[in-house]
Design a protein around this nucleic acid. Structure first.
Lengths: 230, 230
DNA sequence: CGAGTCTTTGAGGGGAGTCAATTCGTGTGG
DNA sequence: CCACACGAATTGACTCCCCTCAAAGACTCG
């Protein structure tokens, strides 16, 4: 196993480390993220596997730029996209010693790779580290819970939920840039790409959103969108 | 907050403490369950709330007799049965400090209530306690993962999955006793009670199962049932 | 034995999947 | 810079599975 040493080296992209809203709304201040700048920065090419299902979980990851998808493949071979991780998000933290899912870079992606052993050593004397570690785990559980709820909803509700969520995680609240193709969105929401496309068109006809380009969406009526999620 | 003291008192029902197969197949030996006999035994009446969503999570629970359902109510008011817990199963362990869901006794139920603080104090010097605690958390995560997969399947696959799962958790592998009404099964699988009923009839017509009574089911073709889950 | 709940069964409709064709967008090479 | 090619995305027609609504039947408990 390669020994990744914690360093404080900061790349040109570090400017956004503390400015982006995280997936969870329960983050109080941006200052109490001791893990945020730990670890080593690694570049991943488009489509590259970051870790695979069943591999030992040795690192905690944090997206700096780009985007990541985690994929769960059931024993029956069914493929499901568990979640997307955007700049500022942590992923790769597992309950057990092995990864229960795989992670791939969606586009070219820059990631901080933090040795969990390094974190574990800190948890003893650094209470803030322990706290953040639990926070990261909580966020992960919330993601999972959200998805189980999601799968009982209609296509329109799912798409609305997805858009609202992406809006909340985007720095520009009105314009969303989707890093992933339609296929990924569909597999994440438990729909087909055709239904995703149709439902989005439907929301556009209703005047809730506006499709600027293939991967750019403008939110026209944020309130109505949120009401659909209910 | 009521202080529940750990005791080793064992009721007449303790005979099955280590004999029942747990939800997870990764349980090695029955001996390494130090938490199994901890805590105080409490009786719950049919339908009684064991804990509620949002309440502080102070205890770990273990079903001795009867059955428990955990219910998740979304902010939109949608109701979803997260899972059922049978004799031998642990529940109520949360990542954070508050319960993210509610728990109810399905029938009259006997439960061991273990103070998490008592466990926490042991984790320092008892490695087996720590290990089992992680195991319980893992089991919970697996339950959640299974359900997300489930909701992308057809009604027939869901029912088959449910029956196979109940079979595996039953001491008599061929005869299943469902402690919960059809409504609970439906809400757990994301179906309606009518679809549950129809699909079961369909499986019975195909010769896979036989409905003995309202809540007793005989598995005739276990292999075919498992193949449906795939 | 009867009231009430739980369950089953039926008919009909709607939403999402499937299959197939077209358009759009992106990257490549001339 | 344009033409081409390939994959991604859209759009349409059709089907099917499950939900909805409604009624009848079965079990449980007083």
């Amino acid at each position: 196993m390669p020994a990744l040493i914690a360093d404080e080296r900061c790349s040109v992209h570090c400017f956004d480390d503390c400015s982006l809203p995280s997936s969870s709304k329960s983050r109080k201040s941006a200052g109490d993220e001791p893990i945020a700048h730990m670890g080593k920065i690694v570049q991943y090419k488009r489509g590259a596997e970051i870790f695979g299902q069943g591999q030992p979980a040795l690192y905690l990851y944090r997206v700096l730029t780009g985007a990541v998808r985690t994929v769960w493949i059931s024993n029956g071979g069914r493929r499901q996209i568990r979640d997307f991780y955007l700049p500022g998000d942590y992923f790769g933290l597992e309950m057990g010693s092995a990864h229960s899912l795989s992670a791939y870079a969606i586009g070219d992606t820059q990631i901080r790779v933090i040795n969990v052993h390094t974190i574990a050593k800190l948890t003893g004397r650094r209470k803030d580290v322990t706290h953040q570690l639990l926070q990261v785990k909580d966020d992960e559980l919330v993601r999972l819970q959200d998805q189980t709820l999601l799968l009982n909803k209609t296509a329109e509700e799912r798409i609305a939920w997805f858009l609202v969520r992406m809006t909340a995680r985007s720095e520009t609240q009105k314009f969303i840039t989707l890093p992933m193709p339609r296929k990924d969105v569909a597999e994440h929401l438990g729909l087909t790409i055709e239904t995703v496309s149709r439902t989005m068109r439907q929301l556009e006809s209703a005047g809730l959103i506006k499709s600027l380009s293939r991967r750019r969406i403008q939110v026209l009526n944020d309130e109505a969108l949120r009401k659909l999620v209910s």
